[in-house]
Design a protein around this nucleic acid. Sequence first.
DNA 1: ATTGTTGAGCTTTTT
DNA 2: GCTCAACAAT
Length: 790
Amino acid sequence: MSDPFDDFPGFEPAAPRAGGGIAACALAAMHGGAPDFLSALNPEQRAAVETTEGPVLVLAGAGTGKTRVLTARIAHILAQGLARPHQILAVTFTNKAAREMRERIGALIGGEAEGMAWLGTFHAISTKILRRHAELAGLKSNFTILDTDDQIRLLKQVLRAENIDEKRWTARTLAFLIDNWKNRGLSPKTVPAGEAGAFANGKGGALYALYQERLKILNAADFGDLLLETLRVFRENPDVLREYQGRFKYLLVDEYQDTNAVQYLWLRLLAQRQAGAANEITPAQKPNLCCVGDDDQSIYGWRGADVDNILRFEKDFPGAKVIRLERNYRSTGHILAAAAHLIAHNRDRLGKTLFTDGEDGEKPEVSGVWDSEEEARVIGEEIEQLQRKGHSLDQVAILVRASFQMREFEERFITLGLPYKVIGGPRFYERLEIRDALAYLRCTAQPADDLAFERIVNTPKRGLGEASLQIVHDHARRQRIPLMQAARILIETEELKPKQRSTFRALLSDFDRWASQIGQKPHHELAEQILEESGYTDFWKQDKSAEAEGRLENLKELVRSMEEFPDLGAFLEHVSLVMDADAADGGERVSIMTLHGAKGLEFETVFLPGWEEGLFPHQRSLDENGRAGLEEERRLAYVGVTRARRRAKIYFATNRRIHGLWQTTTPSRFLDDLPAAHVQVTENRASGSGYGAYAQSRFANMDAFGSRYDTPGWKRAQQNGPGGRAPRTIEGEVLGKSSPGSAFSPGDRVFHLKFGPGAVAAVDGSKLTIDFDKAGRKLVLDSFVEKKSS
DNA sequence: ATTGTTGAGCTTTTT
DNA sequence: GCTCAACAAT
């Protein structure tokens, strides 16, 4: 992404480096002239930077230099010697944002940015804290972080163990609920009874508790836990909290409008600064908390973000200074006017009006087309025209509301031979081959990682199917030990078929060998070796399908990226939190992405297709969240328009295929929210569609479309009544206790599920030698046999 | 253990 | 109407 303020004019990175950036900057300040990073700011920005003490809310409209203020503020604090780098807590939402911030601070003050140990995402910082105090949360400090996939798998196990009909109550639904609770800071104990009861006939809360229990056994935390458990540690251990409160002299938060309840609580705890030393009687200090955000760009309400946090800031932090950044450096006048007029239709906002000193430029253009196919064709043509005029394709983006819209553009661009890139497809680390490879590494580094083990035990296929895994599973559950450990015991006995037994033995000795090499050889070489020796690379080499090559490429990329980390542990840590490989692809390309994905970016030319009722605003948003939903959709429209520097082109199609059926659509009400004076409505697409009338009537009758949206036929009967059949209360199987002294003695009559009845011949710990009536003498584990009472 | 068939769902997505 | 996942059948 390119930002006109990426570089601070006049700043010479090479000049003052001796003795560290801080001293040099401080020196510059003393010599009368302000440091360059200050003098390059406008008055409001400068106020936001220099108001270092007390709570500050910076309302930074789109394109007003938000990141610039944040980075300059940190540079300023450091240059003034107000705090050391490790005393500043700077929180972002995405790793990308954190990375960018670090780079830009580095550009301002040099290597000192390296010392900012507490610059990162909410999750990364929480992880760091939680690892230090893991035992206070019932974890070990090397706990694994589960991603969504692992989470679902684990929940499936819980549901299965509880005999819950997985058809009716899916693991995904439960995951969604639990995530929601965690986002709101609710533990199994504090979930409101009504909500907990809504799932699986009243078992929702219990399932949440069981899931948490399983996580602890696995020594694992999901994303939600990272914050929630840290919060719990803070609440239950005032001394720990105090330590961090004292540590952070300055707190900064980016994109404050996106914070959810846990993040808010987490932040508020840290911001409650106690008076420094115990002997001072000064009242609790006001926190040096600076939150930067834009209520008009809050588009993540659906995943728990609470705009209220930003709207409430002044109440939460009395005496807070609110600074508005309204001078826009990005877009031309007409675009800005259109965006401002659009967003003014929202009721719940703090209110801000962007302005620019720049030229008016071209008016945003609204065009109607017959259907989505024509839409793609027309946009393709326009892009080709821009290209012919010498515009860079990197400066062109198509921003869609929903990802299914992307395909039509891709297809069109392929036939045109127009280079494009889809942003926000499946992330690198979510790809199958990467997840598999990581599972191998996880098993090597963390032998107790059951989910990883399960993933790769039969990948590539090695004949360890459902049946044999089930045996290992049973044993592991009964003994409450990790799968790998269970397998280790089982290969000493005859529970498994000889073939599986030797396969397991080979696999385990592979892992042993790899594990013994940790620290012995560079971890990326070890990774390569693991992938090679496990047969995983060969597995893809033999795959003839089209993707196989790309997958091997990705695996190489994975190994390459490991070199940047000090050791395997650090790499795995990073990967579970991040891992977006912005593959540096050569050549200019048009970007195709969702509106959500476009936040924070900017382009010369932005195409905004699909402005139709039902799609944008999305019907589901309206159905589920009413006016709040509509307003969030409108903010999304605002985000879309404000991505454009010089050209914004909006489209609506008369016909669109929705869930397979062609439907006639109505132009989006957001089109009515655009000011006539700043918008160009064109009818030049002469393909015999009925949009001409729209163009004539729309400004005459503002409410033409506003009041009549009816629920389309595809609206689903959403409420499955609470009825249904009675809950099945069969508890999960009673777990056999691992009795230290064996409950068996020679001569006992026993029954084995597979081998049938027999008599114990000898006992060796948990291993029994049994003479089976039919199967002969076998070595089995005591947990697999039942003693016959008589 | 692979291959075919049926059925549900279908907005946005980070960590 | 299309896709993916879960089950059944070979």
